[in-house]
């Protein structure tokens, strides 16, 4: 088990290394002058010269890479000349917003998607199943943008017009400041995100549960006199879980790198909206930081997924000691 985890960690480190090389090549070894890219079109010649010496752009490439990676490891992600602040500060300030959005949303999409999937699988072909399937199709086929706008319209604009305000339209209040305000501000984004993602989970749960419920050991559980609730949750859902965990890990990893559309629609200043502005403003150091950050999230969540998966499966758990 420990061996397994260690090997997964080693693999994750390798992936991150390759990603860093890739990013480095892409942004530093480009035909145009990196200093110009970093500083922007209107930069003075002196500033550019200073950037060149700071970054050591006059030195050999391997040496440059070593400096680059060394700085990264020290948490120095460079300086954003366009926002006039260190990149690390800029990015770090955005992470709590995205994390709040993603993990809060996760609670909702799991709470919506999984029960729908289970009920559908328990009564295949029934009215409840068809409603659940219909929900899944709507969730999967509607663009997030439309759902977000719809939520804003129905839950904010319409009530406000009628004279009472249910939700704030946008903004973010840190949890430490006021947990209530934090949740209240995030409720609409959470629900919108959940609506989109829950559909995927409802489908996945339904498919998994249908397969597991047909297994011989489910029949054994019933023959033992185990009641139906326990059969569903303790026996069937237990086996249906691993693929859900995998999907969850992938989704979380990807989303922590920025939930672009929802952050934009609800005016949340998270990593996603930072990415959008950085790209639009050609703020290279920030883009690099976000790409690498996304990589770290994906690698870490994969590691968590693999470990959880191994813990969930008695066969894997007992095989590698």
């Amino acid at each position: 088990m420990t061996r397994f985890i260690l090997s997964r960690i080693a693999f994750g480190v390798l992936v991150l290394f390759l990603l860093s090389v890739f990013v480095f090549m892409l942004f530093y070894v480009s035909p145009s002058d990196p200093a110009r890219i970093i500083a922007g079109d209107k930069a003075t010649e002196e500033l550019m010269a200073q950037i060149r010496t700071n970054l050591g752009l006059d030195r050999p490439i391997t040496e440059q890479y070593v400096t680059f990676i060394g700085n990264l490891l020290h948490g120095d992600l460079g300086y954003s000349y366009r926002s006039s602040m260190p990149v690390s500060e800029l990015v770090v300030s955005r992470i709590p917003v995205t994390m709040s959005l993603v993990f809060g949303g996760m609670v909702f999409w799991l709470a919506i998607g999984i029960p729908i999937g289970i009920v559908s699988a328990k009564h295949p072909g029934s009215v409840r199943d068809r409603l659940g399937q219909g929900f899944a199709i709507v969730g999967i086929s509607f663009p997030t943008f439309v759902l977000g706008m719809l939520a804003l319209y129905l839950l904010y604009f319409v009530p406000t017009k009628l004279g009472f305000t249910l939700f704030p339209p946008s903004g973010y209040v840190p949890f430490a400041e006021s947990p209530l305000q934090w949740a209240w501000h995030l409720l609409l984004p959470w629900l919108t995100l959940a609506l989109v993602v829950a559909a995927v989970y409802a489908r996945l749960t339904r498919g998994q549960m249908l397969e597991v419920l047909g297994q011989d050991y489910i029949r054994t559980a019933r023959a033992k006199g185990v009641d139906e609730r326990r059969v569903t949750y303790v026996h069937a859902f237990r086996s249906a879980m691993p693929p859900l965990v995998t999907q969850l890990g992938i989704d979380i990893g990807l989303m922590l790198g920025g939930v672009i559309v929802i952050e934009q629609v609800f005016g949340l200043l998270g990593v996603g909206s930072l990415a959008v502005t950085a790209v639009a403003m050609q703020d290279r150091p920030v883009v690099i930081a976000i790409v690498l950050l996304g990589g770290v999230f994906v690698v870490v969540s994969n590691l968590v997924v693999d470990t959880t998966y191994a813990l969930l499966d008695s066969r894997v758990r007992t095989a590698t000691r």
């Binding site: 297994q215 011989d216 009641d227 086996s239």
Partner: peptide, 27 residues
């Protein structure tokens, strides 16, 4: 259903053909 459940496993129990697939792999 509840009465039947109390018969299953207590008064009548079953043994199935394939003992591997008939036991829950995760417990």
């Amino acid at each position: 259903p509840e009465q039947l459940r109390s018969v299953r496993g207590r008064e009548i129990s079953m043994i199935f053909q394939d003992p591997l697939s008939s036991l829950h792999p995760q417990y």
